[in-house]
């Protein structure tokens, strides 16, 4: 019996770009559910629609039809304050290129989502120190992004995404701009956040190594779900899961289709 609740429900989601002859269907009726505390990976070839899917969940794009429910609430009806609250409070977003504001210090960047809700940096100090310790960036809080390494920037961005204690952390190729060592450090930290704080993470990635940190992976092709892999985190080592991912990629899509 599954004791975990659904945190996210995506039902028959479609998204089209263009009109008439130029009409392109990016998502063709995708449906899936995400359980609370899950670390979900979304994989697919370029143009398969995975980033469109993530952007729809993040309310950066409006779907053409279908529903996205977070904790049972349909986000498609959100406007104005509710939309801003959804973006700032309910979800955290981790970009491939970090997207830190380069004229703000790490401290100011991280506390920004709270400041937007009217919480002062002084009031947010405790949360700040907690996420900074979790992501090992306490020593760079007063530095500007130009003074940080790529890994530090991405961890600061992760801290910013987590400080509001969102229901859902969305990550779009978070290791795409990092070297292998910094990628590993970041993913270790994200896995720890997922495990220790029971934080739900949905991560889009090309990288089988990054995907191996997930507990479930959805494979998307041409806007449709075509495969799913599950991992028993307690019993299956990451290396073994990695082998299965690579095998699926090779069997189902042709490995080269997943390489940019």
């Amino acid at each position: 019996m599954n004791t975990k609740r659904d945190i996210l429900q995506v039902e028959d989601l479609t998204k089209t770009y263009g009109r008439g002859a130029n009409r392109t269907e990016a998502l063709k009726g995708i449906s899936f559910r995400v359980l609370e505390g899950e670390f979900l990976g979304i994989m697919g070839a370029s143009g398969s629609g995975k980033t469109t899917l993530l952007n729809c969940i993040a309310a950066m794009l409006k779907p053409a039809s279908g529903k996205i429910l977070l904790r049972g609430q349909d986000i498609s009806g959100f406007r104005g304050d509710r939309l801003a609250a959804y973006r700032g409070r309910s979800i955290g977003y981790l970009f491939q290129e970090f997207e830190l504001l380069d004229n703000l210090t790490a401290r100011e960047n991280i506390t920004l989502p709270l400041a937007l809700r009217g919480v002062t940096a002084g009031q947010a100090e405790r949360e700040l120190q907690t996420v900074a310790a979790l992501l090992d960036i306490a020593q760079i809080l007063d530095q500007f992004p130009s003074q940080m390494s790529g890994g530090q920037k991405q961890r600061a961005a992760a801290a910013r995404a987590l400080i509001s204690d969102p229901d859902l952390l969305l990550a779009d190729e978070p290791t795409g701009a990092l070297d292998s060592r910094n990628s590993r450090v970041l993913l270790d930290r994200l896995a720890e956040v997922n495990r220790v704080r029971n934080k739900t993470i949905v991560m889009v990635t090309h990288d089988a190594g990054a995907a191996s940190y997930c507990s479930r992976i959805l494979f998307i092709q041409d806007g449709q779900l075509f495969h799913e892999l599950r991992r028993n985190v307690l019993s299956e080592p990451r290396e073994a899961f990695y082998e299965r991912i690579v095998t699926v990629i090779a069997q189902l899509g042709g490995g080269s289709a997943h390489v940019l």
Binding site: L101, N103, L104, E108, L112, A115, L116, R117, G118, V119, T120, A121, G122, E125
Partner: peptide, 18 residues
């Protein structure tokens, strides 16, 4: 001032400073 500031105060001030 930023420890006591909320909203976009810090961002606005940093933009001006930049």
């Amino acid at each position: 001032k930023s420890p006591d500031a909320a909203g976009l105060w810090t961002f606005t001030a940093r933009q001006v400073q930049e």
